[in-house]
Computed example of a mutant assay.
Amino acid sequence: MTSPLRIASWNINSVRARADIVGQFLDEEAPDILCLQETKVVDELFPHELFASRGYDHIIVNGQKMHHGVAIVSKVPMARDNRFDWQANGEARHLGVALPNGVRLENVYIPAGGDIPDRDKNPKFGQKLDFLGRMIDWSGTLEHPTILVGDFNIAPLECDVWSHKALLDVVSHTPIEVETLGRLQAAANWTDLGRTFIKAPERLYTWWSYRAQDWRKSDRGRRLDHMWATPDVAPAAKGHRVHEQCRDWGKPSDHIPLVTEFHF
């Protein structure tokens, strides 16, 4: 008999600044595991009580002052955590754990890449591509069933952005980023769970800029956040949802949470 396991992922853009909406999401949706990106807090200042008071007794963090940072909070035990330096500069952008059933859960915050899609003119863009290159090498060596979640900062499909034509030269949707993400997906034959359950070309966004006065009216969204699974895990996924209502909550992140339910 299978039991459901609901895994959520959310770029929260400062877990302490948005503690109220994190708590609201946990109270309303109660996922078994929440993976956070861009926590923006050193490990010793992470708000453990926010999660422990709601039954998330297992908390593993990889933090950094003011920038980046990832965390996994869980109602189920986690073990053998690792932190890969895919940025090759010590930034806190990855955290991976083993779940009780042997599945690996990897939480990643891929760099945004700056504003100019040219590695010669913009070193940050080159760093992003190199980060993905290291992930490609890692994917080719996987030995365990794995779920990969996080803010990938790439919207790969034409229907993953509000305007393919307008964003072709905008970092996050350029051809080289899409091609590189495609190589990452092919390296372990990853299944894109978002587009498994919400078929292209159906609208599916996870990020809207703060610059829009009315994000719903303009709806200039991009699908930057993803959940992938290796072929030995993907069949266990039974549902996938994005929670757009969270973008309307007080002091919101510019990203929204996504949740996949697995039956193992």
Rank of each mutant, 00 (worst) to 15 (best):
L148P: 02
N153E: 07
D225I: 12
G140F: 13
G69Q: 05
R223I: 06
A236Q: 12
R241S: 10
G239E: 12
L181A: 00
Q24S: 08
W138T: 08
Q245K: 13
A166V: 11
R93V: 04
S209D: 11
I60G: 03
E179S: 14
R93F: 08
F84I: 02
S163T: 09
A234F: 11
A200S: 15
F46Q: 07
D115M: 14
P47F: 10
Q24N: 07
N189H: 13
P111I: 06
I147M: 09
E38M: 05
E179L: 01
A8K: 04
L50T: 10
L5V: 13
E29A: 12
H48K: 08
W215Q: 13
I59Y: 04
D57P: 00
D118F: 10
E179P: 00
I198R: 07
D248C: 10
G133L: 08
Q185L: 13
I110P: 03
L129G: 04
H68S: 05
F84S: 03
P31V: 10
P252G: 10
I59M: 00
D130A: 15
H68E: 08
I147L: 11
A212T: 08
W215K: 15
I256K: 06
S53P: 00
S139V: 05
N107Q: 06
N13P: 04
T141V: 13
M227W: 09
P100Y: 04
T191E: 12
R18M: 11
Q185C: 02
P100E: 06
A212Q: 14
I154V: 15
N122T: 03
R211D: 11
L258S: 04
P47V: 11
K199T: 13
G250K: 13
W207R: 02
V178E: 04
N122E: 05
V97R: 01
T174S: 01
R195D: 04
A166E: 15
H68M: 09
E158Q: 08
N11P: 09
P235Y: 05
W10Q: 01
L142P: 08
H173M: 08
N82M: 08
V15C: 12
K75E: 07
I147Y: 01
H68N: 15
F264A: 03
E29N: 06
A200Q: 08
R119S: 13
R223M: 09
Q37K: 02
K65P: 04
H240C: 14
I59G: 03
S53A: 14
T260D: 10
A30Y: 00
H263R: 15
D118E: 09
W228G: 03
H48N: 14
R203P: 01
V242T: 12
G182C: 12
A212S: 15
H68K: 10
H144M: 12
S3G: 05
L99N: 03
G96P: 03
C159L: 01
V161A: 12
Q24T: 11
R241I: 07
R195G: 06
G126I: 11
I176E: 15
N82R: 10
F264I: 02
R195I: 07
L142K: 06
H255F: 03
E28C: 02
Q64L: 05
M1K: 02
D20C: 00
G194K: 12
F46S: 09
G182I: 06
I12D: 09
A17M: 12
P47C: 05
L50M: 08
I110T: 06
S74R: 04
C246H: 01
S14D: 12
T260V: 15
T196A: 14
G194E: 03
F264K: 00
H173C: 09
